[in-house]
Simulated assay, not measured.
Amino acid sequence: MVNLFNVEAIESVKPVVLMIVVQSIYAVVNIMLKMVTNDGSSLSVLIAYRFVFSTAFTVPFALFFERKSLRNLTGTVLFQAFLCGLFGGSLQQILYVKSLALVSATYTITMLNLIPAITYLLVVSLRMEKPNLGTLAGKAKLMGTLSGICGAMILTLYKGKKLFNFSVHIDLLEKYVTSTTHHSHAGSHVCGLMLALGTAFSFSLWYITQSKMSENFPWHYSIAALTSIMGAIQSFIFALCTERDRSLWKLEWNLRLLTAASAGILASGLCFVLLAWCVGMKGPLYVSAFNPLLLVLVAFISSLLLNEYITVGR
Rank of each mutant, 00 (worst) to 15 (best):
N216L: 11
I208S: 08
N254I: 14
V177Y: 13
L275R: 11
S214R: 13
C271S: 08
T156C: 03
W249H: 13
S167A: 06
L285K: 15
H183W: 00
S235E: 12
L195S: 00
H220I: 05
Y286G: 11
L193M: 13
P284T: 01
S179Q: 15
V279G: 04
K250R: 13
F217N: 02
I229E: 05
Y286V: 10
I265G: 07
A186K: 06
A276I: 02
D245A: 15
A276W: 06
L266G: 02
T227Q: 15
H220G: 04
S222M: 02
Y176E: 13
K175R: 15
G151M: 03
K162V: 13
A276N: 12
N254F: 04
Q234R: 12
A260D: 08
V177P: 04
L226K: 07
W206P: 02
K161W: 10
Y158R: 10
K250A: 14
F217E: 01
N165F: 01
V190E: 01
S167E: 05
G264L: 01
H183F: 00
L163G: 04
S214L: 09
P218K: 08
K175F: 11
A260E: 04
S179L: 14
L251G: 14
I208H: 10
T178G: 00
M230I: 07
K282T: 04
W219E: 13
S167Q: 05
S184P: 00
T181M: 04
Y176V: 13
T156W: 01
C241E: 06
C278W: 09
E215H: 14
W206A: 01
H169I: 09
S262H: 04
T178A: 00
S228G: 05
V190T: 08
G187A: 10
A196C: 08
W219I: 02
H220M: 11
K212H: 10
I265Y: 05
N165T: 05
I237R: 08
T156P: 02
I149T: 11
S247T: 14
L163N: 03
S204Q: 08
I208G: 01
L173M: 09
A276E: 09
Y176N: 15
T242P: 10
E174K: 09
I233Q: 06
L193G: 04
E243D: 14
W277N: 07
F166N: 12
V168Y: 07
M213H: 08
I154E: 12
V168E: 13
A200G: 04
F201D: 07
Y207P: 01
W206I: 08
T180E: 09
L258W: 11
L248R: 15
T242N: 11
S222R: 04
K282P: 02
R246D: 14
S247M: 14
A239E: 07
I149D: 10
I229N: 06
L172D: 03
F164T: 05
T199P: 03
I154F: 15
S247D: 15
L270S: 03
D245M: 11
S235M: 09
G283A: 14
I223A: 11
S184C: 01
M153V: 15
G264I: 02
I154T: 15
V279W: 11
S211A: 10
